[in-house]
């Protein structure tokens, strides 16, 4: 216990329980949502994207960080790896945006009994996640098609499709499978599920100890990411997209451009490996990587 009586320090095993709980439940639900048939109305897809209510409920009832990371990992493991649909690096993006969105939603609620807060958190949680993934999806096409600007109508189509799918997800997954079930579940589970894990129910005054994720390493990573995002933004402002850049190079340097791009890919791969290595060493040194739930 910290000096302030209000801070509620969870033991590492309680964190682990929340993590395991969130992972298995959301993972299971993910297997189902992968299988629920999608109703295709032209380009518009009416589908149950995910059962966001599960991580939302758990993030609201328990420490949001462990519930959020657990759920995101559950999706990767059950919904992707076990079904053989693991998208490799693409999952990293999902993992980050999803856990971030759920975490924020959980932090928004200070009193699980307050229905307004719970409802708002549910909508905002799904909203953040959908916004992020919409942007990423647009970005993928933008990077993947060299003459993005040159293809007439492509930009409009991408924005339209992604925009509609954003709205659709907000309405279907956001309302039917996030807002309503969360509003139904949180009050019913409040005070019931916590004792099963040996955890005190969250009160309006409860303050969880801050997760020590905001370490220098993460700060620096965040700053770099933000810079990158800003850089990409300004690139698009200046009518300078990767495609043009690439083909321009190809014109000037001929085959060299290909080798260059291979080299870049290789460098990126090596850098990633080095980062992973370094992280591993660091976590080996200080004994507990902060992002590891079982610290």
């Amino acid at each position: 216990m910290k000096s302030t009586a209000r801070t509620y320090t969870l033991t590492s095993s309680q964190k682990m329980m929340i993590f395991v709980l969130s992972m298995s439940l959301y993972g299971l639900s993910n297997m189902f949502t992968e299988l629920i048939p999608k109703l295709q109305l032209g380009p518009l897809e009416l589908s149950v994207e995910y059962f966001a209510f599960i991580p939302l409920t758990l993030c609201i009832l328990f420490h949001p960080f462990y519930a959020a990371v657990g759920a995101a990992l559950g999706e990767v493991i059950f919904g992707e790896l076990m079904l053989g649909q693991f998208g490799g690096l693409g999952e990293l993006e999902k993992f980050l945006t999803f856990s971030l969105a759920m975490y924020i939603a959980g932090r928004m609620v200070s009193d699980p009994r307050n229905r307004m807060q719970v409802g708002a958190a549910a909508i905002v949680g799904v909203g953040i996640h959908q916004l992020c993934s919409t942007l990423v999806d647009i970005g993928k096409v933008w990077i993947g098609v060299e003459e993005f600007e040159a293809v007439p109508g492509l930009a409009e189509s991408v924005v339209l499709i992604e925009g509609v799918s954003f709205l659709n997800t907000m309405i279907v997954s956001g309302t039917l499978f996030a807002l309503l079930p969360t509003l139904y579940l949180v009050p019913r589970l409040y005070g019931k599920i916590e004792p099963l894990l040996g955890i005190r129910p969250r009160e309006a005054t409860t303050r969880y100890e801050s997760v020590k994720v905001w370490t220098p390493k993460l700060m620096i990573g965040g700053v770099i990411l933000a810079l990158l995002a800003f850089g990409a933004e300004s690139l698009s402002e200046t009518d300078w997209n990767f495609g043009e850049w690439d083909s321009g190079l190809a014109d000037r340097l001929g085959s060299g451009a290909i080798w260059l791009s291979i080299a870049i890919a290789a460098v990126i791969a090596v850098v990633i490996i080095l980062i992973m290595r370094a992280r591993k060493k660091r976590s080996g040194n200080d004994g507990s990587a902060e992002t590891v739930p079982y610290a």
């Binding site: 060299e146 293809v151 007439p152 109508g153 499709i161």
Partner: peptide
């Protein structure tokens, strides 16, 4: 669907290649 929609926005068959 990306392709079909881009046709609506003034694209042509050439946009299929990218």
């Amino acid at each position: 669907w990306l392709f079909i929609l881009s046709l609506f926005f003034g694209g042509d068959i050439a946009s299929a290649l990218p």
